[in-house]
């Protein structure tokens, strides 16, 4: 565990707390893509199959359980508690276009051709692009609530912080995980446009608005 990894995980935790807080205080899931949130459930469930057969640490165990359960809880909030506030006509990105290619890539580029390894690889690729339906939805509406932008910023910063963590681990432990690194760089890259608007506008007190 190094500082980049720890801060990254804390940013990830923070993003989930911000999202749940937004939904509870506004009693709404407006502006949040159900499809992106559903993809995160798939990501966590397929990645953490190792909960059943490998023990890493208490930290690791608790975080995995938290990510699986909180992502399911968010789906529950969107699907039942705050269902009337979700507008499916804005959430129209086709998730098959993401899941299909990710699965195909996982079958081709993996470390071992076995079930859990392919599921792990699939989850890494899918996480990299899972934000697409959310970004697509914001592109369509052209705006986002400030609290939603804080959520997205924390979520983007999480994976961005994993990059210095991988560099640090290469020098201190000699470990390299090309699948996670390439996917992590792609994932962070997808946030660059968003980060630009977030840091230059939202953090200066302006509303998140995309040019028409």
């Amino acid at each position: 565990m190094n500082i980049f990894r720890l801060l990254g995980d804390l940013a990830h935790l923070a993003s989930i707390f911000i999202l749940v807080h937004k939904m509870h205080t506004t009693r709404s899931c407006r502006g949040i893509s159900f499809k992106t949130q559903a993809l995160y459930v798939v990501v966590f469930v397929t990645r953490y199959i190792d909960l059943f057969y490998s023990w890493i640490s208490l930290y690791n165990f608790v975080m995995k359980i938290f990510f699986i359960s909180s992502s399911c809880y968010i789906l529950y909030l969107m699907k039942y508690r705050f269902r009337p506030t979700h507008d499916p006509t804005l959430d129209t990105f086709k998730v098959e276009y993401l899941a299909g290619p990710c699965f195909a890539l996982a079958l081709i580029f993996n470390y071992h051709f076995d079930f859990t390894e392919i599921m792990w690889t699939f989850s890494i690729y899918l996480e990299a692009v899972a934000i697409f339906p959310q970004l697509f939805m914001m592109q369509r509406t052209g705006e986002a609530e400030t609290i939603t932008t804080h959520y997205l910023a924390a979520l983007g910063i999480y994976r961005a912080l994993y990059i210095p963590n991988w560099i640090y681990r290469y020098y201190t432990e000699g470990t390299v995980d090309p699948i996670a690194i390439v996917a992590g760089i792609v994932q962070t890259g997808l946030y660059l446009d968003f980060f630009y608007v977030y840091f230059t506008k939202v953090l200066q007190g302006q509303k998140f608005e995309l040019p028409a």
Partner: peptide
């Protein structure tokens, strides 16, 4: 050369 990846990340 690089060691194989350790799956201890989240």
């Amino acid at each position: 050369s690089a060691n194989p990846p350790v799956k201890d990340e989240l």
